[in-house]
């Protein structure tokens, strides 16, 4: 991919920034490594709101009442970014923005899991109900059994939401697989950045109708992506 040399980094696409980051992160010259840092800076800035949204929407698998408290969201976002640095700076080999996004999601997901698990352990210890929550047995203490139960829940949920499902080609294919043509049209236009009002005008529908098709379409998309994973 070629670019005019004077195109500022801030105007480059995520795919281009990822390519620059991967290309220059191990460069010998500091100037080239600074380019990698700058690329990372823009990528993470653009991803910040998505990461924050994931954290705010997170529900612990099997325990939907367990979530990140609103007062802790920004702290967990920062912790997730630390995890992204740890996991991705050296090892990320993916080439596309969608793959990068999927890798970010995995980091965010496990950060939220760890934080909620920590909070649950503290609460259980305070309430003194750890032994009641997990059946007694010969296979170790209540704390260990509790952690194992949580880990099983987590593994099941992660199987359902594998990062591979988020790759762009999977999303495009999934949209094509949405059975209802109106729903497909609404989702396509949504992904292109159209507002509900603009979609309603384009498809000659009411806004309420578009809202309904959007919700169902997003649910359907999720089902298809989870099924195909």
């Amino acid at each position: 991919m070629t670019h005019a040399k004077d195109v500022p980094l801030e105007q480059r696409s995520d795919d281009e920034l990822i390519a620059l980051f991967a290309r220059y992160r191990d460069a010998a010259s500091i100037a080239e490594r600074k380019l990698a840092v700058r690329s990372w800076h823009i990528l993470i800035a653009r991803a910040h709101e998505r990461i924050r949204g994931w954290v705010a929407a997170f529900r612990f698998p099997g325990h939907p009442d367990v979530r990140v408290p609103a007062s802790d969201i920004d702290d967990v976002v920062q912790q997730a970014l630390e995890r992204c640095l740890e996991r991705l700076v050296e090892s990320f080999r993916g080439g596309t923005a969608a793959e990068f996004r999927a890798a970010l999601k995995t980091c965010v997901y496990f950060t939220c899991m760890d934080r909620c698990r920590e909070a649950m352990r503290r609460e259980m210890a305070i309430v003194g109900s750890l032994d009641e929550t997990v059946p007694a047995g010969d296979d170790g203490d209540a704390q260990g059994r509790f952690d194992q139960a949580l880990a099983r829940d987590a593994a099941r949920a992660e199987d359902d939401r594998s990062a591979a499902a988020l790759a762009l080609h999977a999303i495009i294919q999934a949209i094509d697989d949405v059975p209802n043509s109106d729903m497909r049209a609404v989702i396509r236009l949504t992904m292109q950045g159209y507002s509900s009002r603009e979609i309603a005008e384009e498809l000659e529908k009411t806004v309420a109708n578009v809202d309904q098709l959007r919700s169902r379409g997003i649910r359907k998309l999720r089902e298809i992506l989870d099924r195909d994973d």
Binding site: E10, D14, H41, I42, A45, R46, A47, H48, E49, R50, G53, W54, A56, A57, F58, R59, R67, A97, R101, K105, L166, I171, M191, Q192, G193, S215, I218, R219, L221, R222, L225
Partner: peptide
């Protein structure tokens, strides 16, 4: 609703932030 928003964020395009908003995020 949380589940739906999460599903949308999984697939949503990155918004075309204004230069001011991108600077704020950076």
């Amino acid at each position: 609703l949380a589940d739906l928003i999460e599903a949308f964020l999984d697939v949503a395009p990155t918004p075309d932030y204004s230069p001011e908003t991108l600077e704020e995020l950076m």
